Computed example of a mutant assay.
Amino acid sequence: MEEIPSATFVFSRQTKSLILMKALTFLLAASLFTICKATPLKQQEQVVSPGVVLYNQLKIDAAFPALEKEAKSGNTTSQYYLGEAIRKRNGYMTPEALHWYESAAENNNVYAIIQLGRFKSEPCQEIRDCSPSKKTQAEWFELANELVLPKAQKGDPESLYLMYEITLNREWLEKSANAGYPTAQYWMAVSERQGEGFFLIPGKREASIKKWLLLSSEGGHPKAMMDYLQILFEEGDVVGMRHWLETAAATGDQAAISNYGAYIAHTPDKIGYPLDLVKGYALFTLLKELEDSGGIGRYVERKSKEIRKKMTSEQTEKSLEVAKDWKATHPPLSFFPDKLGN
């Protein structure tokens, strides 16, 4: 496959150990969308604010003022992401980050509540820049459980997944995956790839991983699509690769778009797409908007020049219209960072 910077995650295998990551998180905490009482989760997730779009594009400096404006207006999703952005920028839970997490948590944002449950004060105490949380870790997890468990018991797929994040009990993850939640299906595949689960018959583990990635891909999970493409590549399924790469690109995933744009422009022609220089260049024009987020700047610039050399001035002009139309009819570009990030 086309080699681009590792930060873009193209057809890469998940290298981190899910179980180790979850175990470490649990030790720090107890030792993949906002839930509110009034509005259903899925309804809330339909609207993505400008600040969250910038956060998902890893344009953190640009995201801060937008997220802060949205957070101050009472947007609990933006309050959560502002807390995430501040914590990640500083490498620990600052008083400002804690404030925004707790602001979201006071409005029953379960993601914020879970992160507060995972928060240990020792790192910030060492730096002497720490404010006490309004609840203990155990109290935050108890609140999360109170909000999520009733919905999980009724079979709500996302709530089942959140119970896994709260308890780290893999049974909840499997229940959520079986209930059709794409994020849970993706992490089931990752966990099995890292050795979880029991498979006595040779080949069953690989078949199960492929099954979960396909189900998650069909549910619209971009990272699952990219991992599923790797399996199709190894199997030599070019027809399947053409379908899923185009589908992944339509989600806004920057890695899928960069590969799709390169392949339809035949730079190189890897999987037999019809040549479309105009659309290929248009997609790289859009990727330039990410600047050097995720370290992709040089790659995008190099590929853009490579495609441009093949084009007429008329084609270049037409590509601007195609780029504008794509942007208007597709989700924003995104790196799709995990919502419950470390």
Score class of each variant (00 low, 15 high):
197 G>I: 06
185 Q>F: 01
242 R>P: 08
16 K>D: 15
125 Q>V: 03
46 Q>D: 13
327 K>R: 15
37 K>Y: 09
268 P>G: 10
191 S>A: 15
333 L>E: 10
107 N>P: 05
137 Q>S: 14
244 W>S: 00
87 R>P: 00
113 I>Y: 13
215 L>D: 14
120 K>S: 14
134 K>P: 00
81 Y>M: 02
199 F>N: 03
52 V>T: 10
278 V>W: 04
15 T>Y: 11
82 L>C: 05
39 T>G: 01
147 L>V: 02
270 K>C: 09
94 T>L: 03
84 E>W: 00
209 I>K: 07
110 V>Y: 12
258 S>V: 05
140 W>K: 08
215 L>Q: 14
129 D>R: 02
217 S>R: 05
193 R>N: 12
73 S>R: 15
86 I>K: 00
155 G>M: 06
331 P>A: 12
151 K>G: 02
172 W>Y: 13
51 G>V: 11
40 P>I: 04
59 K>H: 04
11 F>I: 02
20 L>G: 01
121 S>H: 12
210 K>C: 04
117 G>S: 14
339 K>D: 08
271 I>T: 12
213 L>G: 04
264 I>S: 04
19 I>C: 05
202 P>E: 14
163 M>Q: 12
296 I>P: 00
250 A>P: 00
309 K>Q: 14
101 Y>S: 03
149 L>R: 14
198 F>L: 12
185 Q>P: 02
325 D>A: 11
87 R>G: 00
204 K>N: 15
233 F>D: 06
94 T>F: 08
161 Y>T: 07
265 A>L: 01
65 P>A: 10
175 K>L: 11
58 L>R: 13
58 L>P: 01
155 G>T: 09
266 H>W: 13
222 P>D: 02
300 V>T: 06
88 K>I: 09
315 Q>P: 10
185 Q>H: 03
36 C>S: 13
3 E>R: 14
115 Q>F: 10
89 R>T: 13
